[in-house]
Design a protein around this nucleic acid. Structure first.
Lengths: 149, 149
DNA sequence: TCATTATAGTACTATATAGTACTAATGTCA
DNA sequence: TGACATTAGTACTATATAGTACTATAATGA
């Protein structure tokens, strides 16, 4: 592949605009104290709770240093708790609080609303193909980054 | 569309990992004082130079407030210049310096290297379809955000 | 069992990003 | 022509994000 593509540039732009819109929608749905980035962390905890920070690194694709300070804030706002793992004291276990569990339905409503904008005018088949390709690319990148270490 | 998709979540992750890898590649290619985000601005100036900040807003999908401070830094590092537009004094014209023009070839080499990782294992047809869908989505988002104002 | 290495997480620092509120210049219309 | 609205851009502030360097715990192997 030697043609100069612009996929990465497009992804950056989409991410940027999406985050701005999603932030506004969160406010509209009266989720006033969470932003898109924090939502991403909570979202991945809904899928699996009580996980060490290392797992959150791979599940959110954020660096562990980025996560540390974001988790600080989420603890402060009572969305999550931090507890040392008794079995392996190097680890810190992150868990959801009642407050964040109760948020789930409303957050999913925002997501659906957002997805409607995102995928407007595309067929189910196109969306399926698109998400398959996204997963493929993410896998490429993860493999590559893993090899760096 | 009422199935809960994860396109936005995937895009966020891809953007995150891509940026980390791209930053490392820039260093490998000895572009030591530019990062991915700054590169994105210079990249769009290579496509069209001598533009007001407002144009850069749409071309990079960054907010105008984000751009202000990034442009500050790029001026400081002698990659761009700021000049008031004589015809309409509200406007500031951004232009590339010799330094940034000379960077173009090396930057494109990094991009190609990056794209090889990004699209590894996909056919040209798949990539074409994928980028078409990306453009479609970006267009959806821009239209929506425009309607907000 | 102790020295070495690997793993998990954090403190500190720098840049990226956006929102709110502002200034200055321009355009518009009675 | 003067009041008002619009447009372009910036100052200030807060959060997101990552890198480097560090500490603490655990695993390994002579």
């Amino acid at each position: 592949m030697d043609k100069l593509r612009e996929g990465g540039f497009l992804i950056s732009k989409i991410k940027q605009v999406s985050a701005r819109i999603f932030d506004k929608k969160l406010k509209e749905y009266e989720i006033t104290d969470l932003n898109t980035a924090q939502g991403r962390i909570i979202f991945s905890l809904w899928q699996q709770d009580h996980v060490p920070i290392k797992d959150l690194v791979s599940r959110t694709a954020l660096s562990k240093t980025s996560l540390t300070s974001m988790l600080d804030r989420l603890v402060q706002m009572d969305y999550i708790t931090r507890k040392p793992d008794e079995a392996d004291k190097r680890k810190t276990v992150i868990a959801l609080t009642e407050k964040s569990k109760q948020l789930k339905k409303r957050y999913e409503a925002v997501s659906l609303d957002m997805l409607a904008v995102f995928y407007e005018g595309l067929t189910e088949k196109q969306i399926d193909d698109f998400e398959t390709t996204l997963n493929h690319i993410l896998n490429n990148l993860n493999t590559y980054e893993e090899g760096y270490k």
